[in-house]
Computed example of a mutant assay.
Amino acid sequence: MLFFFLIPLWGPLCLLLPPLQTYARFTGAPLKVHKVTNPWQSPSGTLPALRTGHGEVISVPHKIITHLRKEKYNADYDLSARQGADTLAFMSLLEEKLLPVLIHTFWVDTKNYVEVTRKWYAEAMPFPLNFFLPGRMQRQFMERLQLLCGEHGPENEEELEKELYQEARECLTLLSQRLGSQKFFFGDAPASLDAYVFGYLALLLQAKLPSGKLQAHLRGLHNLCAYCTHILSLYFPWDGAEGPPPRQTPVGPETEEEPYRRRNQVLSVLAGLAAMVGYALLSGIVSIQRTTPARAPGTRSLSMAEEDEEE
C-alpha cells in the first residue's frame, strides 16, 4: 500500500514533522512525499497529512504513527517490555523538558525568531500567506508554551527561562549518558524513541541560530552529534547538512491529480486580500468617510429668486 504524505516545504522547523519522516524511514513505509508551501493544499487543511490507499486522511501525528503500525510498519516490534517502558519514559521526558526550550528558542527568543524562523517561513510561503501565517503560528506556539509551563506566571519570565534551559541541558546530558557508545538507544536497530530524539536534536543541531544557548551545550556532547550525523547519512542521504535538494515543479499528469489546487489558490488570495484590507481599516491606514455632495454654484441664489416670485 502506498501512502501519500503531504508535508510543508519548510519541514525542518515543524517540531512534530521530523519524527514522523524519520519513523517512516526507519520502518521502510512506502511514502510518496509531496512538499507544499500552502496548508490549504491539504485535504484536511493542516500539515502534515497522510492519505492512505483507501482515501482516508490523517493529520494528527500520533495517529499517523498508529496507522503505520497497524499496517505492519512498526519500529518497536522487537523491543522488550522494559524497553517499551523506557521508550514511554524518555518520550515523556523529551516533551516535558526539551520541547518547551525548542519552542522558546525558535518562537519566543526575539533574535532567533526575527533572523531565522520568521525569515525562513516568509521565504517558503507564497504571497499573501507569508504576511500573516508566521505571526499566527508564533502566537499558537507561545500559547502551547504557556500550557506546558502553566504553573509559572508571566511576572517571573527571566526565572522561568533560566529554569527551562537548565532542565533542557540536564535532559541532553541524560540522553548522552543513556546512548553511550551505541548506534541507537536500544542497540543496532532504530526504534520510535530514536525517531523522536533525532527529530528534536537535528532541528537544534542543524539550524544556524544567532542565539544558541542550548545549541552550544548539545555540540559539546559528541556522541549525540555523531548519532545525528549517522542517522542523516544512513536514512537521509540526500540531506547533507542544510536540507533537501531544490524543489522541482512536477510536470505531467501528476499535477492534474490535485483536485484542490485551483480552489485553494483562489481562496488563499481572497483570504490574504481580506486580511490586508481588515488590517488597514483597523489600524487607521485606510478610513471611509461619508461626505455630503456640494451644491452647484448659483443653486442657492436660484432658490431664493423662486421664493421671491411666489411671494
Rank of each mutant, 00 (worst) to 15 (best):
D239K: 08
Q182I: 07
L234G: 04
V251M: 06
R261N: 04
R262K: 12
W238D: 10
A216K: 15
Q177N: 11
I285E: 14
L221G: 02
A275C: 14
A294P: 15
L232Q: 06
P246Q: 01
A195N: 08
P250R: 01
A207N: 12
V251A: 03
W238M: 10
Y279H: 12
P245R: 07
H217R: 15
P259H: 03
D188H: 07
V277P: 11
A241G: 13
A294E: 14
A241Y: 10
Y260G: 01
N223T: 14
S287W: 14
L209C: 04
R262M: 05
H217P: 09
Y200S: 02
L267D: 09
A216R: 14
V286F: 09
S181F: 07
L232M: 10
G252L: 05
L221E: 07
S192P: 06
G199K: 00
G284S: 11
A275K: 09
F186E: 02
S233R: 15
S181W: 07
L214G: 00
I285P: 06
A241F: 09
A191I: 05
L205K: 06
T255N: 05
M276Q: 14
G243T: 03
S211M: 12
D194W: 03
A216S: 14
A195Q: 05
Q182D: 08
M276S: 10
